[in-house]
Lab assay of single mutants.
Amino acid sequence: KFNKERVIAIGEIMRLPNLNSLQVVAFINSLRDDPSQSANLLAEAKKLNDAQAP
C-alpha cells in the first residue's frame, strides 16, 4: 500500500511548478525514508508550492 502511495506522491511532487530542485529532492528523500508519511509529505509539498507561487 505505502509503495503505491509513495510512487503517486513522488509523481505529484515532481509536477509542482513552484518548488525548486532542492525542495523536490528533499521531499522525495523524506518519502523514501518513511513511505507511510506519503499523504502528509504530499500535503506539505503542495502547501509550500502554493506559498511560493508568483
Results as ranks from 00 to 15, higher is better:
Lys1Met: 13
Lys1Gly: 15
Lys1His: 13
Lys1Phe: 08
Lys1Trp: 14
Lys1Tyr: 11
Lys1Ser: 15
Phe2Lys: 12
Phe2His: 14
Phe2Glu: 15
Phe2Asp: 12
Asn3Glu: 15
Asn3Lys: 03
Asn3Tyr: 12
Asn3Met: 05
Asn3Arg: 03
Asn3Thr: 07
Asn3Trp: 15
Asn3Asp: 15
Asn3Gly: 07
Lys4Ile: 06
Lys4Cys: 15
Lys4Ser: 14
Lys4Asp: 15
Lys4Thr: 12
Lys4Leu: 04
Lys4Ala: 09
Lys4Arg: 05
Glu5Gly: 06
Glu5Phe: 10
Glu5Trp: 10
Glu5Ser: 06
Glu5Met: 13
Glu5Lys: 04
Glu5Thr: 05
Glu5Ala: 08
Arg6Glu: 15
Arg6Gly: 15
Arg6Gln: 15
Arg6Met: 15
Arg6His: 15
Arg6Asn: 14
Val7Gln: 14
Val7Gly: 05
Val7Thr: 09
Val7Asp: 15
Val7Met: 13
Ile8Asn: 04
Ile8Phe: 12
Ile8Thr: 04
Ile8Gln: 08
Ile8Val: 07
Ile8Glu: 09
Ala9His: 03
Ala9Trp: 09
Ala9Pro: 01
Ala9Cys: 05
Ala9Gln: 03
Ala9Val: 09
Ala9Ile: 08
Ile10Glu: 13
Ile10Leu: 08
Ile10Trp: 04
Gly11Val: 07
Gly11Ala: 12
Gly11Ile: 11
Gly11Tyr: 14
Gly11Ser: 11
Gly11Asn: 11
Gly11Cys: 15
Gly11Arg: 13
Gly11Phe: 14
Glu12Phe: 15
Glu12Asn: 08
Glu12Tyr: 14
Glu12Arg: 14
Glu12Met: 14
Glu12Pro: 01
Glu12Ala: 14
Ile13Cys: 03
Ile13Gly: 00
Ile13His: 00
Ile13Thr: 01
Met14Ser: 05
Met14Trp: 04
Met14Arg: 07
Met14Ala: 04
Met14Val: 06
Met14Asp: 01
Met14Ile: 09
Arg15Ile: 05
Arg15Pro: 00
Arg15Thr: 06
Arg15Ser: 07
Arg15Met: 05
Arg15Val: 04
Arg15Phe: 03
Arg15Leu: 07
Arg15Asn: 08
Arg15Trp: 03
Arg15Glu: 03
Leu16Ser: 01
Leu16Trp: 01
Leu16Met: 12
Leu16Thr: 00
Leu16Ala: 01
Leu16Asn: 01
Pro17Ile: 09
Pro17Gln: 08
Pro17His: 08
Pro17Arg: 13
Pro17Tyr: 06
Pro17Val: 09
Pro17Asp: 04
Pro17Ala: 09
Asn18Val: 00
Asn18Ile: 01
Asn18Ala: 03
Asn18Gln: 02
Asn18Ser: 04
Leu19Ile: 04
Leu19Gly: 01
Leu19Tyr: 00
Asn20Cys: 10
Asn20Pro: 01
Asn20His: 12
Asn20Asp: 08
Asn20Leu: 12
Asn20Ser: 12
Asn20Gln: 05
Ser21Glu: 07
Ser21Asn: 10
Ser21His: 10
Ser21Leu: 12
Ser21Val: 11
Leu22Lys: 11
Leu22Tyr: 13
Leu22Val: 11
Leu22Asn: 06
Gln23Ser: 02
Gln23Thr: 02
Gln23Asp: 03
Gln23Asn: 02
Gln23Pro: 00
Gln23Trp: 03
Val24Lys: 13
Val24His: 02
Val24Glu: 01
Val24Ile: 12
Val24Ser: 03
Val24Asn: 01
Val25Thr: 12
Val25Tyr: 13
Val25Phe: 14
Val25Cys: 13
Val25Lys: 11
Val25His: 11
Val25Gly: 08
Val25Glu: 07
Ala26His: 09
Ala26Ser: 11
Ala26Cys: 13
Ala26Tyr: 12
Ala26Leu: 09
Ala26Thr: 08
Ala26Asn: 07
Phe27Cys: 02
Phe27Lys: 00
Phe27His: 00
Ile28Asp: 01
Ile28Pro: 00
Ile28Leu: 14
Asn29Val: 10
Asn29Ile: 15
Asn29Cys: 15
Asn29Thr: 08
Asn29Gly: 05
Asn29His: 08
Asn29Arg: 12
Asn29Glu: 07
Ser30His: 09
Ser30Asp: 05
Ser30Arg: 15
Ser30Val: 11
Ser30Ile: 12
Ser30Gln: 13
Ser30Ala: 10
Ser30Lys: 12
Ser30Tyr: 11
Leu31Ile: 12
Leu31Thr: 02
Leu31Cys: 03
Leu31Ala: 03
Leu31Gly: 01
Arg32Val: 15
Arg32Tyr: 14
Arg32Thr: 14
Arg32Cys: 15
Arg32Met: 15
Arg32Phe: 15
Arg32His: 12
Arg32Ile: 13
Asp33Cys: 10
Asp33Thr: 13
Asp33Leu: 14
Asp33Ile: 14
Asp34Val: 04
Asp34Ala: 06
Asp34Asn: 10
Asp34Gly: 03
Asp34Phe: 08
Asp34His: 14
Asp34Cys: 13
Pro35Lys: 04
Pro35Val: 05
Pro35Ser: 06
Pro35Cys: 14
Pro35Trp: 14
Ser36Gly: 06
Gln37Ala: 10
Gln37His: 07
Gln37Arg: 13
Gln37Phe: 07
Gln37Val: 06
Gln37Lys: 11
Gln37Met: 11
Gln37Trp: 06
Gln37Tyr: 05
Ser38His: 15
Ser38Asn: 15
Ser38Tyr: 15
Ser38Trp: 15
Ala39Arg: 13
Ala39Phe: 14
Ala39Trp: 14
Ala39Cys: 14
Ala39Asp: 05
Ala39His: 09
Ala39Pro: 04
Ala39Ser: 09
Ala39Gln: 08
Ala39Tyr: 14
Asn40Asp: 09
Asn40Phe: 14
Asn40Pro: 06
Asn40Ser: 13
Leu41His: 03
Leu41Gln: 04
Leu41Tyr: 10
Leu41Glu: 02
Leu41Val: 13
Leu42Pro: 00
Leu42Phe: 04
Leu42Trp: 04
Leu42Ile: 06
Leu42Cys: 03
Leu42Gly: 01
Leu42Val: 11
Leu42Thr: 05
Ala43Met: 12
Ala43Arg: 09
Ala43Thr: 11
Ala43Leu: 10
Ala43Glu: 06
Ala43Pro: 01
Ala43His: 07
Ala43Ser: 12
Glu44Cys: 12
Glu44Asn: 07
Glu44Met: 14
Glu44Ile: 13
Glu44Phe: 14
Glu44Trp: 14
Glu44Lys: 13
Glu44Ser: 09
Ala45Arg: 00
Ala45Asn: 00
Ala45Leu: 02
Ala45Gln: 00
Ala45Ile: 02
Lys46Arg: 12
Lys46Ile: 09
Lys46Glu: 03
Lys46Thr: 05
Lys46Gln: 05
Lys46Asp: 01
Lys46Ser: 04
Lys46Gly: 02
Lys46Trp: 08
Lys46Leu: 08
Lys46His: 07
Lys46Tyr: 12
Lys47Ile: 10
Lys47Glu: 07
Lys47Cys: 10
Lys47Pro: 01
Lys47Gly: 05
Lys47Val: 07
Lys47Ser: 09
Leu48His: 02
Leu48Lys: 03
Leu48Pro: 00
Leu48Phe: 04
Leu48Asn: 02
Leu48Met: 07
Leu48Asp: 01
Asn49Arg: 01
Asn49Met: 03
Asn49Cys: 02
Asn49Ser: 07
Asn49Pro: 01
Asn49Glu: 01
Asn49Ala: 03
Asn49Asp: 04
Asn49Phe: 02
Asp50Phe: 11
Asp50Arg: 12
Asp50Tyr: 08
Ala51Met: 11
Ala51Lys: 11
Ala51Gly: 05
Gln52Asn: 08
Gln52Ala: 05
Gln52His: 03
Gln52Arg: 05
Gln52Thr: 04
Gln52Ile: 04
Ala53Arg: 08
Ala53Pro: 05
Ala53Val: 08
Ala53His: 07
Ala53Ser: 09
Ala53Gln: 10
Pro54Glu: 09
Pro54Ala: 12
Pro54Leu: 09
Pro54Cys: 14
Pro54Asn: 10
Pro54Thr: 08
Pro54Ser: 09
Pro54Tyr: 11
